[in-house]
Design a protein around this nucleic acid. Structure first.
Lengths: 256, 256
DNA sequence: TTCAAGGTTCCGCATACTCGAATACATACT
DNA sequence: AGTATGTATTCGAGTATGCGGAACCTTGAA
């Protein structure tokens, strides 16, 4: 994770601006006054910031509410399609969702967290969608574990040190040594398994996608309700489909 | 358009930060030095800014290149789904694309420009996709014209004054009076027509979607190559489909 | 008519942003 | 090996500029 540590002297004004944006995001809209209250800054200060952001078109105003603008979508889309492999993954994610009928996702590691980059929910998929772009603790997802298993150990330890190992359900693995052992099994097996470590009643399988240099791009996962995800399907058929898809993607990436 | 005029005294440090982000976006990645050159700022200044943005996870670093992070995707998605009507439109856009086989888009007016919010490219749609989130002059698209036809005239004039009336092709209408007359016809007819005003060889139809208070949410458009988009299809069948879809969406929005 | 909630403007002061030079680290070329 | 080039990082000083606070404005509800 790049730059875990706070910079020696950050540009605090920029910090303030993003704190404003993050608050607007968290509350899905905010007023000048509520921002001044929450951030303990003078109204006039917030006002100046909002005017600046408004002028640069990063926020929009509707009456006395300020909202994030669609400008961010443009930035986000660039991040989402930055590496040439990403769009190729997207296609395959769709295909896999159609084939299996379950929810298929593509997750990328960024700043030590798992970020949802693509998702396709097959015909009978469940609805527990953390939105695209959302970030969650990386050790709690099948795709995240698959990624960790293929990153440098030093880096993984940095991540754990920085974020800790939170438990999202009773089944979340929070022991560091156990995780590192699991990573070994994941490398051997080729894919990772998640049984309710993230959401109760949800099972998932994940496997990494590598770029032409062998670096990890991210990981694809298939997830569905525990009662469906079991037996031969969960232990053989889906893993094979998943690994096959990852393989196809990697072939596409190399030959392009 | 809210706040056309520059604020009296903007927070210039915030301006700097976003100029950095916009440069990274424009160049799809940048180095510290290139940023310092382009912005005429000291290396150390850029460095401090980058460190701040890195720490807040708005950019990522790969070697000596800095890129926009997926964080913006989260912000962008919020903007994209902010109004409850948007997701409903998305569904219908997909349906319409499937039915017609052409490219169907949903466009919203923001800060006086047309922003692409959703797109579905039907089976035999052409590939001239300005990305989702991209902004273009609003008077050059069918959807944009439909929106303008339903906004307050004062506001529309403000937009024209601010951005001017650029021509994207030889067919772009750049005469203000002619546009206002066209808006009247659009209101009468219920939908707008675009014949190569935006991209050579591309025809399109657009119509607005209103929310429960009658305010304009945005507009849906169907577009395709001129050789296909003509005759009865272009003058009757597609307009009817389009208007029907817009109507369905509005009914959904009211009853929810 | 007043009050409250929201936004806007203005000015003086001290903070903190910017600069520039020095340092460091790779990689590539000779 | 040695030099050059492109890159990032650190530090101290000076001053531009961001911040606070008070006054003012608007709107809508009591």
């Amino acid at each position: 994770m790049q730059s875990v540590d706070s910079p020696a002297n950050p540009v605090s004004t920029v910090d303030t601006a993003f704190e404003i944006l993050e608050l607007i995001h968290a509350n899905e809209g905010a007023t000048l006054l509520s921002l001044a209250d929450d951030l303990d800054l003078a109204k006039s200060t917030i006002h100046r910031h909002l005017q600046t952001l408004l002028h640069r078109q990063y926020i929009v105003r509707d009456g006395d509410q300020y909202y994030l603008s669609l400008r961010f979508l443009e930035f986000g889309r660039q991040a989402q399609t930055r590496k040439k492999g990403y769009p190729m993954v997207e296609e395959k994610v769709k295909e896999l969702a159609e084939e299996t009928g379950e929810r298929v996702q593509f997750i990328v590691e960024e700043h030590g967290q798992a970020v949802y980059v693509y998702r396709e929910t097959g015909s009978h998929a469940v609805q527990t969608d953390p939105g695209i772009g959302k970030r969650i603790p990386i050790h709690t997802t099948s795709a995240g574990k698959a990624i960790l298993a293929h990153l440098e150990e030093d880096y993984v330890e940095q991540i754990f040190d920085h974020y800790g190992l939170a438990a999202l359900t009773d089944f979340t693995e929070t022991d560091e040594d156990a995780l590192f052992e699991e990573f070994e099994r994941i490398r051997d097996r080729g894919y990772s398994i998640n049984e309710q470590e993230n959401v109760e009643g949800l099972h998932a399988l994940g496997t990494t996608v590598h770029d032409e240099h062998g670096d990890v791009l991210g990981a694809i996962s298939i997830s569905g309700p525990s009662h469906r995800m079991k037996g031969k399907l969960f232990e053989e058929e889906l893993p094979n489909l998943l690994l096959g898809t990852a393989n196809e993607v990697e072939l596409n990436i190399v030959h392009s």
